[in-house]
Computed example of a mutant assay.
Amino acid sequence: MLWPERVLFSHLSFQESLGCCLLLGFILISSLYAWRTGLPRNHPRTVKRRIVSVMVVCGVSPLILLFFSSSSDGHRAYPLSTWLGLRSDHLLQAAVYPLILTMVLFAGPMVMMMMECSASETEEEPQAFQILALRNYIVAPFAEEFTFRACMLPVLWPHCQLLGSVIVCPFFFGVAHIHHVIERLSNNNGSPVVHICLESLFQFCYTSVFGAYSCYLFLRTGHLIGPVVCHMFCNFMGFPDFAGIMQFSIWKAATLACVFVVGLVAFAFLLQPVTDPLLFGNTVYTDVS
């Protein structure tokens, strides 16, 4: 066998765990700039090359994790694939339950989307649209969840447990999106610098909030598939357009506002029971005895 059958990470100090996370995040973001095309980030050639880069990084990241791991046969040691949430048991529940939970949270935006779906026609740009869809809805969600959740949480978990991990881990995910500031400034078409910085700060905040939710899903289910599927769904939905409610008539706007509130309240009530570790056979990310 090329690597130990069972490993653990409890031997690492907190500083070493943070160092491992920084290294993983740095390698992923650096891979995006490995190609110097001089083209915008959404140009098909740039997108294709970045897809290759992040897929290579996803192959290297587990090896970095192995380097930081310690071989063991103890009762808290598991195969690396199990730490990474790459399990086949309870797979259907792990994919469906978190998605339903997230859809409950997005009840308002989903209803709004259906209302807006009247007679809008989509312009077809086959190649450009397909490659952007591949990046936004498949590659980016998988690569980000694999790096920022599956590879970082195993080293953070022994020190932080559930609450600490949900607070600390999203910081790396939020900071990783700051690189968009550089791209926006370099491709600035006249937007004020302050506007670009505020936009990036807003992106940092909401990606950090999503990162916390995604960490929670990963640690509660012990599966990677739930966070990936939810990330795909959230990328498709985008950030809720609260201001868009005002474009409708009074009664429709009031109905929409109610659906937004009901979705949020229902989500809060369902969060714990729907992510109960027992539903997913999760014995990895449970309180250390």
Rank of each mutant, 00 (worst) to 15 (best):
residue 58 C to Q: 11
residue 235 N to T: 02
residue 128 A to I: 11
residue 194 V to H: 06
residue 120 S to N: 08
residue 8 L to R: 15
residue 229 V to W: 03
residue 155 V to T: 09
residue 262 V to H: 01
residue 177 H to P: 07
residue 6 R to Y: 07
residue 114 M to G: 06
residue 164 G to A: 08
residue 233 F to H: 05
residue 19 G to I: 06
residue 287 D to Y: 13
residue 178 I to L: 15
residue 165 S to L: 04
residue 127 Q to R: 14
residue 57 V to C: 01
residue 14 F to N: 02
residue 36 R to T: 11
residue 232 M to A: 11
residue 170 P to H: 09
residue 247 Q to W: 00
residue 175 V to T: 08
residue 243 A to C: 01
residue 14 F to Q: 05
residue 130 Q to K: 11
residue 105 L to G: 09
residue 78 Y to I: 00
residue 8 L to T: 12
residue 10 S to Q: 04
residue 90 H to K: 14
residue 255 T to W: 10
residue 262 V to W: 07
residue 278 L to V: 07
residue 140 A to I: 10
residue 181 V to H: 05
residue 183 E to T: 13
residue 43 H to L: 05
residue 250 I to E: 10
residue 240 P to L: 14
residue 89 D to F: 10
residue 136 N to C: 08
residue 276 D to S: 14
residue 4 P to L: 05
residue 98 P to S: 10
residue 127 Q to C: 10
residue 31 S to K: 01
residue 95 A to N: 04
residue 59 G to E: 10
residue 100 I to D: 01
residue 248 F to M: 05
residue 234 C to D: 04
residue 129 F to T: 15
residue 92 L to M: 13
residue 86 L to S: 13
residue 52 V to P: 00
residue 49 R to I: 13
residue 183 E to N: 08
residue 198 L to D: 03
residue 171 F to S: 02
residue 235 N to L: 02
residue 28 L to P: 07
residue 203 Q to C: 04
residue 81 S to Q: 14
residue 59 G to A: 15
residue 72 S to N: 12
residue 285 Y to M: 09
residue 42 N to V: 05
residue 262 V to Q: 03
residue 145 E to W: 03
residue 94 A to Q: 04
residue 234 C to M: 12
residue 83 W to V: 14
residue 5 E to D: 09
residue 51 I to C: 04
residue 19 G to H: 03
residue 180 H to S: 09
residue 37 T to D: 04
residue 283 T to F: 02
residue 64 I to N: 08
residue 267 F to L: 09
residue 268 A to P: 05
residue 204 F to G: 09
residue 171 F to Q: 01
residue 209 V to D: 01
residue 98 P to L: 05
residue 75 H to Y: 11
residue 242 F to T: 07
residue 9 F to S: 09
residue 53 S to D: 06
residue 102 T to M: 12
residue 34 A to V: 13
residue 148 F to V: 02
residue 243 A to Y: 00
residue 260 F to K: 00
residue 192 P to Q: 08
residue 150 A to F: 00
residue 278 L to S: 12
residue 209 V to R: 00
residue 196 I to K: 12
residue 193 V to R: 13
residue 206 Y to W: 15
residue 249 S to T: 12
residue 34 A to T: 09
residue 273 P to G: 14
residue 65 L to H: 04
residue 280 F to W: 00
residue 65 L to V: 12
residue 287 D to N: 15
residue 59 G to L: 15
residue 198 L to S: 12
residue 173 F to H: 05
residue 154 P to T: 02
residue 239 F to C: 03
residue 275 T to G: 01
residue 85 G to M: 03
residue 76 R to Y: 13
residue 278 L to F: 01
residue 180 H to Y: 11
residue 49 R to L: 15
residue 241 D to V: 01
residue 230 C to A: 14
residue 86 L to G: 11
residue 122 T to P: 13
residue 217 L to C: 13
residue 241 D to Y: 08
residue 40 P to A: 12
residue 250 I to M: 06
residue 252 K to Y: 02
residue 198 L to W: 10
residue 244 G to Y: 00
residue 144 E to N: 07
residue 199 E to R: 15
residue 243 A to L: 08
residue 10 S to M: 00
residue 190 G to W: 00
residue 93 Q to M: 08
residue 171 F to C: 02
residue 120 S to I: 12
residue 26 F to W: 12
residue 71 S to Q: 15
residue 21 C to W: 04
residue 284 V to N: 08
residue 246 M to P: 00
residue 172 F to R: 10
residue 59 G to T: 10
residue 192 P to F: 09
residue 114 M to Q: 07
residue 42 N to G: 07
residue 25 G to I: 04
residue 221 T to W: 04
residue 155 V to A: 06
residue 277 P to A: 06
residue 26 F to R: 02
